[in-house]
Amino acid sequence: MNWKTLLLGAVAGFAAGYAGKQIWEQSGNPSPEKVLENVKSAVKKDGKIYGSWILMKPETYEKFDLDYQVYRGGITRHNEGKREQFEFVADASTGTVIDFTHKNI
């Protein structure tokens, strides 16, 4: 076997795999990590984030007589010397935040 042919095949396989991954990420549902990252970027504008979590398994959530598959998560931050806790519910298929609650602790 020629080394050039082997190298060309490996490069082509890598390129096809990378292109497939990019297409899948753009067309598929957002991952729980991506949803959490988006919510954190919105919340951290007003204070430093100290902790965050998200449930990795979608669950059913009802709002206004509509059922959604959602991710639940939360964020803790400090703002002006106060600790704040946020909990959110985000649509698992789009990443859109459906519900957002705030508590001062």
Rank of each mutant, 00 (worst) to 15 (best):
1 M>A: 12
2 N>W: 11
2 N>M: 02
3 W>R: 15
8 L>T: 14
9 G>T: 15
9 G>F: 12
9 G>R: 09
9 G>K: 03
10 A>S: 15
10 A>C: 13
10 A>N: 07
10 A>D: 06
12 A>M: 13
13 G>M: 06
13 G>R: 04
14 F>K: 04
15 A>G: 08
15 A>P: 06
17 G>Q: 06
18 Y>A: 14
18 Y>S: 10
19 A>Y: 09
22 Q>P: 02
23 I>N: 00
23 I>W: 08
25 E>K: 13
25 E>N: 11
26 Q>V: 08
29 N>C: 08
30 P>A: 07
31 S>T: 14
32 P>C: 05
32 P>A: 01
34 K>H: 12
36 L>T: 06
37 E>Y: 13
37 E>N: 12
39 V>K: 00
40 K>N: 14
40 K>S: 06
41 S>R: 08
42 A>Y: 12
42 A>P: 05
43 V>R: 01
44 K>V: 11
44 K>I: 06
45 K>T: 11
46 D>P: 05
49 I>C: 02
49 I>K: 02
52 S>I: 00
56 M>Y: 12
56 M>E: 10
58 P>G: 06
58 P>L: 00
61 Y>Q: 02
62 E>D: 10
63 K>V: 11
64 F>H: 09
65 D>T: 13
65 D>S: 14
65 D>Y: 15
66 L>D: 03
68 Y>T: 04
69 Q>H: 13
73 G>N: 03
75 I>H: 03
78 H>F: 12
78 H>C: 03
79 N>S: 12
79 N>W: 03
80 E>S: 08
84 E>L: 09
89 V>H: 00
90 A>Y: 00
91 D>L: 02
92 A>N: 02
93 S>Y: 13
95 G>L: 01
96 T>Q: 08
96 T>C: 03
98 I>M: 04
98 I>Y: 01
99 D>R: 03
103 K>D: 08
103 K>C: 01
105 I>K: 07
